[in-house]
Computed example of a mutant assay.
Amino acid sequence: MTGELEKLDRILRRAEAAQLMGVAVATVDSWVQRGRLERPIQLGVNAVGWRLSTLEAFIAKAQRAPYVRNGRGRRHRNASLPEANNSVQPAELEHAAG
């Protein structure tokens, strides 16, 4: 019986999903609103959750995504923009500063 339970694709609620991914619940909500993370399954009137397999696939995709630069010049992984090339050339910096 224990082997059968381990094979189940369990549902994780918002707090569990955030903990699994190492982010705040608000970040998970933001990712859903921006379409980066798929919408959760409606479990009840006030309850939602994601299948563990869905979150594991999201994490795997995010780990494979290349680094890109955000508007502040910080490097981060962006699973939703894998083809983005936001590198700024030195000549562009001089033109923007002048």
Rank of each mutant, 00 (worst) to 15 (best):
E16A: 07
F58W: 03
G22E: 11
E6P: 09
E92H: 03
P40V: 02
L20D: 02
L43N: 07
E16P: 03
A60W: 00
E4Y: 09
A17I: 11
P66I: 00
L20P: 05
H95G: 12
A47H: 02
L8C: 12
T27F: 01
V28S: 08
R39K: 14
R34I: 08
I41P: 05
Q42F: 01
R13K: 15
I11P: 03
G22K: 02
L81E: 10
K61G: 13
R34T: 10
A15T: 13
M21N: 04
I11T: 14
A97Q: 10
W31R: 09
L5W: 11
R51T: 03
R13M: 13
L93R: 07
Q42H: 13
A62C: 05
A60I: 00
A62T: 13
L43I: 06
V48L: 03
H76G: 08
R72P: 02
K7M: 14
A96F: 08
R77N: 00
G73H: 04
I59R: 13
L93F: 02
A57L: 11
L8H: 12
N70P: 06
I59G: 06
A15N: 11
A57F: 05
F58L: 01
M21C: 10
A18P: 14
L55Q: 08
R10G: 08
R77K: 05
N78K: 01
R14I: 14
V25Q: 15
V32Q: 01
T27Q: 10
P40I: 05
A57V: 09
P40M: 03
R39T: 15
A60K: 07
A15I: 08
L55K: 03
R34G: 07
V23D: 02
V48T: 10
E4A: 15
Q42M: 05
A18I: 04
A15C: 09
P82V: 02
T27A: 08
E92W: 05
E6G: 13
S87F: 06
R51W: 05
R72L: 05
L55W: 05
V45P: 12
L37C: 10
A47V: 03
S53L: 00
G3A: 15
I41E: 06
I59A: 13
L37Y: 08
R64H: 04
Q33R: 15
I59N: 12
V25H: 10
L37Q: 07
D29S: 15
W50F: 09
A84D: 08
T54P: 08
H76D: 04
M21A: 12
A18E: 06
Q33Y: 03
G71E: 14
R13H: 10
T2A: 13
R51E: 06
R74P: 00
A47K: 07
A79D: 01
Q33E: 09
G98D: 15
L55S: 08
E38T: 14
G35D: 10
G98Q: 12
I41T: 08
L93P: 07
Q19A: 12
A96E: 09
S30E: 09
A60Y: 04
T54W: 02
Q63H: 10
W50R: 02
M21S: 03
R75G: 05
R14A: 14
R74Q: 05
T54H: 13
A26G: 11
E4R: 14
G49A: 11
A96L: 10
K61H: 15
N85W: 04
V28R: 01
L12I: 14
R69G: 06
P82C: 03
